[in-house]
Design a protein around this nucleic acid. Structure first.
Length: 446
DNA sequence: TTAACTATGAACGGTATA
DNA sequence: TATACCGTTCATAGTTAA
């Protein structure tokens, strides 16, 4: 991975541009430089054809790159106004809605069904359509930065507990229409008891949970559930309140469910698949370990939620779509589109994990897809020439979808919750880079 | 029997929101 | 105050191959 190079790039840039960010540069200015540096690491890839670009880019050697950075920085500054702050400032604009239903959820699941209207900024209007996803509860300022880069589109925050039996608080930035959405059918079970009927028999009255918490990448251990069992066995009947609280705290933390008398267990991989809207055994086979199944699933989309947002594409593209899927994981976007009945004509899927690529490839074959699947490993290697070559072969992308790594944003991370500049999460800037490149190329082709 | 590799268990706070 | 969180790291058990 060349991510580690990013950090080393940041310092020289602040040094070579003292007029813009000297040692006294504010946090906001430095943040801009960092953002620019993320793009800069792929600056050559960013520029598709020098001959087609404005003169400012056409200079010799490294000077070209420097001009490019300057241009980017000034553009960002102009966009948001000088002096605003991306981190920890008190002038943040983006707040999480309550209830977290974004621009609406299927009317069957809530009484609250306000009619939303939104006007997209001109720069955000496609083609292509784009759809970006990440954790809602990111450090302060992260969603402001994401939104600013993605053409100032307002994020849509949705908790998947309105679609299935497990919570999943996520933000989505997209330029799709928001009217006339429809959900996947059948609607998935929305309570723990409906989703996991076998647990009903053992569920004690004092465990009042009806929804699971967010399905994460790790599960509770057998030792933990054994400890809980022993703690409960000391009491015949209802345990005292302090024991109840201990057990419930662990249940909530690890998403444990009741599978026997005094017996709790973490969800099985196929239960996680079901809750997230994937076909049973989607992640099975191909030599993947149980641990890795949890990891791949924990990193994935909730299919029903994403499909609801993507459903508007069905009427727009009756003949099917060409899809660029970045950080595609186990193929949540592809599964969502397939379940919506939208034909996948050409899919360029970029995913760093080999087992995930295998999972997606075998799903592609099992579902008898008639389109063409091209899988690539590294978004950082996807440059303008390769994109243009791909797009020339089938006429551009209709949708660019992806959820970039959340490792450095997620609340569970006690070690490296470094925000968008973190090692993995900085790949967001590659999502933006590639999206902007495709917009640029498609704009030229029209 | 080793050694190398793989899978699992357990400990590890802090931020943000209500 | 209470609750939730697409996680990381290291030790060790378990497995494979020579």
């Amino acid at each position: 991975m060349s991510c580690s190079l990013v950090i080393s790039v940041i310092i020289p840039i602040t040094n070579v541009l003292p007029d813009l960010a000297g040692p006294e540069a504010s946090v906001a200015e430095l943040t801009d430089f960092i953002c620019a540096a993320q793009i800069a690491k792929s600056a050559d890839a960013y520029l598709p054809h020098e001959s087609k670009l404005p003169n400012i880019y056409i200079e010799n050697g490294t000077h070209k790159k420097r001009k490019f950075y300057e241009c980017e920085i000034l553009k960002r500054k102009k966009q948001r106004g000088y002096g605003s702050n991306s981190f920890g400032g008190d002038n943040e604009t983006i707040r999480l809605p309550k209830p977290m239903i974004g621009f609406g959820v299927p009317s069957e699941v809530t009484e609250l069904c306000p009619v939303f209207h939104r006007a997209l900024p001109d720069a955000a209007i496609g083609p292509p359509y784009f759809y970006y996803e990440n954790v809602a509860l990111a450090p302060k300022g992260v969603w402001d930065t994401i939104s600013r880069f993605l053409y100032d589109v307002e994020p849509e925050f949705v908790d998947s507990k309105y679609f299935c039996a497990a919570a999943r608080k996520r933000g989505y930035v997209h330029n799709l229409p928001i009217n006339n959405r429809f959900p996947l059918l059948p609607l998935p079970p929305r309570t723990i008891h409906d989703a996991l009927p076998l647990t009903r028999k053992w569920w004690p009255e004092w465990d009042t949970r009806t929804k699971l918490n967010c399905l994460q990448t790790c599960i509770g251990s057998a030792k933990l559930t054994e400890r809980i069992r022993k703690a409960l066995e000391r009491w015949d009947g209802v345990p005292p309140l302090n024991v109840q609280k201990y057990v419930l705290d662990e249940c909530r933390k690890w998403n444990l469910v009741w599978v026997g008398r005094n017996k709790l267990a973490p969800l099985e991989p196929d239960e996680v698949e079901m809750l997230l809207g994937f076909p049973r055994n989607h992640t099975r086979g191909g030599g993947i370990s149980r641990t890795d199944r949890y990891k791949s699933l924990g990193n994935s989309f909730q299919v029903d939620t994403v499909a609801y947002h993507l459903s508007v594409l069905k009427d727009l593209f009756p003949g099917g779509i060409n899809l660029l899927s970045l950080f595609s994981g186990i193929g949540g976007a592809e599964v969502a589109l397939h379940r919506l009945g939208i034909r996948l004509k050409n899919v360029v899927s970029v995913e760093i994990s080999e087992v995930n690529r295998n999972i997606q490839r075998s799903w592609w074959e099992q579902t008898n897809q008639t389109g063409n699947l091209i899988d690539l490993a590294d978004v950082q290697q996807l440059n303008g020439d390769r994109l243009e070559q791909l797009m020339n072969s089938f006429g551009g992308f209709d949708l660019i979808i992806g959820g970039s790594p959340c490792n450095n944003l997620a609340g569970s991370n006690r070690v490296s919750r470094d925000g968008l500049e973190g090692k993995e999460s900085s790949l967001f800037f590659d999502y933006f880079r590639i999206l902007d490149l495709v917009k640029c190329i498609m704009g030229r082709q029209q």
